[in-house]
Simulated scan of single mutants.
Amino acid sequence: MRLCICFVLLSIVLYASADNPFSSGFRFVKDAAGGARDMWRAYRDMREANYIGADKYFHARGNYDAARRGPGGAWAAKDGGWQRGSGVSGRGAEDTRLDQEANEWGRRGGDPNRYRPAGLPNKY
């Protein structure tokens, strides 16, 4: 997991230093780092909760929190998020598709509670 975090942070630095519309400001990097923390917090909470049926909620919540930070946070949610690319969740292609749907819902600003299962402790 530490390798993943290091990769995300390195990616943020490299992306911010590249020739792109967001590279001119420290704000992008700060928002991207905050977005990576939001994604990590959602993942950590998902693991801690260990609650059946809650994974989509945590996917949506992590992406929602990160994307609300601005362009850097949205980048972290889209390009630094979990289950990117063609990989599958370990529970099959359909579960991965639903995870991606929850990710996109959160990134677009949709309320993560749409995916909140009944009985999930209020702590989350």
Rank of each mutant, 00 (worst) to 15 (best):
S23L: 03
A49P: 04
N50T: 11
A49R: 05
R2W: 12
I12P: 01
D55N: 14
A60S: 12
L14N: 10
G90N: 10
Y64R: 14
A118V: 09
L14S: 13
C6R: 15
S24W: 11
A33Y: 00
R44S: 07
K123S: 08
R114S: 05
W105H: 15
E101A: 13
D95E: 12
A33R: 07
E101V: 15
M1I: 07
R37I: 15
N63K: 05
G62D: 04
L10D: 09
D79C: 13
D31A: 11
W82Q: 14
A32W: 01
Y124H: 03
K123Q: 07
E104Q: 15
S89H: 09
Y64G: 03
T96P: 00
D79P: 00
E94N: 06
V88N: 10
R2K: 14
W105E: 02
D79H: 13
A36N: 07
C6G: 04
E101L: 10
S86N: 11
Y57V: 03
S24E: 13
R2C: 00
D99P: 00
A74V: 03
A66F: 03
W40T: 14
R114E: 10
V88F: 07
P71S: 11
R27G: 00
R2A: 09
F26T: 11
L98S: 12
R37Q: 12
G72M: 03
G110E: 01
G106K: 02
V13D: 07
V88Y: 14
R108W: 12
E104W: 12
Y64N: 11
R84F: 00
F26C: 00
N50L: 02
L120S: 02
K78D: 10
A32Q: 09
L3Y: 13
L120R: 02
N50D: 15
G62Y: 03
R61K: 14
R37V: 15
S86T: 13
Y43P: 00
K123R: 15
D65H: 10
C4E: 13
N103D: 15
D99H: 14
Y57N: 03
E101W: 06
G70M: 08
N20E: 06
R47D: 07
D65G: 01
Y64P: 01
A93M: 08
G25M: 06
C4F: 08
G73T: 08
P117K: 04
R61Q: 11
A32L: 01
Y15V: 14
R27V: 05
G35M: 04
Q100H: 15
A118Y: 11
F58L: 05
Y51L: 01
A54I: 04
A49M: 06
C6K: 14
K123L: 08
A49G: 06
R108P: 00
R41E: 09
S24I: 15
G34H: 11
K56R: 15
M1Y: 12
G106Y: 03
V88D: 10
L10P: 01
A67E: 02
D19Y: 11
F7I: 13
L120T: 02
A18G: 05
G92N: 03
F22D: 13
D45L: 13
A74T: 07
L120P: 02
R47Q: 12
R91G: 01
I12W: 01
D99Q: 11
L120N: 02
P121F: 02
G35S: 04
N113R: 12
L98P: 00
F58W: 09
A33W: 01
Y15A: 11
